[in-house]
Write a protein that binds this DNA or RNA. Structure first.
Lengths: 392, 392
DNA sequence: CGAAATTAGTCTATGTTGTGGACTAAATAT
DNA sequence: ATATTTAGTCCACAACATAGACTAATTTCG
């Protein structure tokens, strides 16, 4: 119960320490690994041998780094064996990717689909087809997919794999992971949370420090990454930025509240004048004052909500993703202004506002990356041969 | 660097597991400890012997629990050796307490003082006097104080022990822990954060789950406890509830922003009609409609801000402390109403709103408790003899 | 060009820690 | 009184990391 440690846990922990170092710093010799982890060369050699046996690491040539002395043999994460599946159900598409242990994207598949119109089990069946195909392709590449994560556009109960409410799909308490019925363990997670992890591992990454990633879609979600891990809150529903109040006595929101951010900076509000995103960008590029001022207003509302979020969460960086990424040029300044005005005096540093580097794929990538991170953090759980069971 | 484990870490971890179990579950026999931790009886016996030697645990009589078989010997945390110091600097008082390992309060001292008028080093000197006396008294009780925490009314940089800005004291970038110059290591922490921990360990505690504790004083701070630990954000400035925006184009706030919660529900706003807290309570008790409606309005504003906070942080419970505790009866309903209206549809459960059980002492208790928790989580760091150094 | 110096990695003996099962101790049930 | 049951200790053993000697492969320098 209380994290008791035994010999196998010690070994598992040290395997994780070595893998983690390889993940963070890239290829390293055994000697460098020993230095970095504080373990002895002997121990590192034994651990690395286990990792190579299990297919998690490979030797990759000699390292002659100008120093004198015998050159070392670089060891790096192997992308040839273990992989993870990222899945996404969203309003107008299904999507899927396979990422290997070195966080290289090996496969992507996606399919346009009007999921708003379809029954949940039809949508899930469609995703099953897509994923089954991807699993077959991954197997053909020699990859062993050890698990997956499905991104869903709403608050998710991770224990049951259920999305509690997905207003944009019209779903309510739909169980996804069970009915999906894939031959690998799949967990469910909120799409905005996974997009934040996607940005962490496949976007600007560690330069961001602790950051808040805003996913502007029809709804507005946010994922907070602290110390390289998601902050989820008590029930995993943290980060519902779209329903933070911007105008207390504003118009009613479908969430039951009033004056929520979503009404002022959601996709529907931004595109209200009519037309799609491309049309809006054209008008903005042409300097259409109505469009520019619309973005200004949305940005200011977003800035008010983000100032509140920054007061409560204290992120180092705020990353604007989703629809705010293509509109960044027009939205960033009002956001920055509100943050500066509302936070500047109390805090030494106001969060930096940057644009997301990962596009629509952020959530699937984050989902696959999350499985990879679990493998790296606890390799024994996924590769039983690594930690010989001493409890028979 | 990457958490490598060696034998001494294994032992330290297992000592922590045993201590943690004793802390959570109370007195237990060695057999019950073995069951709870998953370690063998042999191992538990050895670990317990070490803890008893170090004075962290004691045997406390036989346990005849109606079962047949040999009765066990209960082991419990010892309150006779290790203790911690909690300190607080606030606007109108200095305060200090000593808590032992079993989280029993052994000493309290406090002193009224108008710290707004005094220079920081004078205030710190006053706290030093108070603390030095308490340390002497603790020594007379046979207690070894292993560390302390000082609570400060503003955002704190824990690395330097500096409070960045304490508007109510008129302080700016004042280093506290160094100049305090106590003979035990002292850390600084935000007062609202520590009040939340105080509620966790000395108030309603574990029943709350993950909770947000609101400290209403002149400013309004909040501390979030997740999984029994503080959520601090990137720079330790998380939880500034008072400057969450409630009315975007409202009046200017001294923080530089506008329409902050503090303007609508801070102590100054609540007591605006004049008089002190006692007078307000009298008027409320008498049913004075002006007073009641004032509380209604403040409660509604607080509810709006808390709905935003709940959207972002997803706590299980919201605890109202500070000035909101005595006014709970009049403030809770509007808070609950706003939460229900603004969160009810999106979430399965709306956070419960409860009153704080710890009074003005919350912060000092939380500060001392935090040191105690560190001792329990890493006893080897405080009692070197527990973990024989194998690295000479 | 060859020897010394330097660094990488392996091998072996050893120390620390937890384990499993036998053992003793002390209670209740029959 | 004896069997049964549970608590706690003892001892041989297993798992893991360690220290330091050793081999291997390179650069530096005479």
């Amino acid at each position: 119960m209380a994290g008791a440690l035994r010999h196998d846990a010690m070994r598992a922990g040290n395997l994780a320490a070595v893998l983690g170092e390889l993940d963070r710093t890239g290829p390293l010799t055994r000697a460098a690994l020993a230095e970095a982890t504080g373990l002895t060369k002997t121990t590192v050699s034994k651990l690395v041998a286990g990792l190579i046996d299990a297919g998690l690491a490979v030797e990759s040539g000699a390292v002659r780094d100008g120093e004198r002395g015998r050159p070392g043999t670089a060891v790096r994460l192997s992308g040839d064996r273990v992989a993870a599946l990222g899945l996404e159900i969203n309003v107008d598409y299904l999507s899927c990717c396979v990422v290997d242990l070195s966080r290289t994207v090996r496969l992507r598949r996606s399919r346009a689909a009007d999921n708003r119109a379809a029954a949940p089990d039809r949508v899930i069946a469609g995703l099953r087809e897509l994923a089954t195909g991807a699993l077959a392709d991954a197997a053909a590449l020699g990859l062993t997919v050890v698990g997956g994560t499905v991104a869903l556009p709403g608050p998710v109960d991770r224990d049951t794999g259920t999305v509690h409410r997905a207003p944009n799909l019209g779903w309510r308490d739909v169980e996804v992971t069970g009915p999906l019925g894939l031959p690998v363990p799949v967990r469910a997670e909120n799409e905005a949370n996974l997009a934040a992890l996607g940005e962490l591992w496949f976007g600007a990454g560690p330069q961001l420090g602790d950051f808040l990633h805003v996913s502007g879609e029809i709804g507005i979600g946010a994922g907070l990454v602290v110390d390289g891990a998601l902050f989820r809150g008590a029930h995993g529903f943290a980060g519902e930025l779209g329903h933070v109040v911007v105008v207390p006595d504003g118009p009613a929101c479908r969430c039951g509240g009033a004056g929520c951010l979503e009404l002022y900076a959601g996709q529907d509000a931004l595109l209200r004048p009519g037309g799609d995103l491309a049309a809006l960008r054209d008008r903005l590029a042409a300097g259409d004052p109505v469009a520019v001022e619309g973005c200004e207003r949305a940005g200011a509302a977003l800035g008010v909500a983000l100032a509140g979020a920054a007061n409560l969460l204290d992120p180092e960086t705020i990353v604007l993703g989703g629809i705010f990424a293509p509109l960044f040029h027009w939205v960033a300044d009002p956001v920055r202004r509100e943050l500066r005005d509302r936070l500047g005096q109390m805090r030494a540093r106001v969060p930096a506002v940057v644009v997301s580097r990962t596009g629509a794929e952020a959530a699937t990538l984050g989902g696959a990356g999350q499985v990879i991170r679990r493998v790296i953090a606890a390799p024994g759980d996924y590769l039983p041969q690594l930690v010989p069971p001493n409890n028979i």
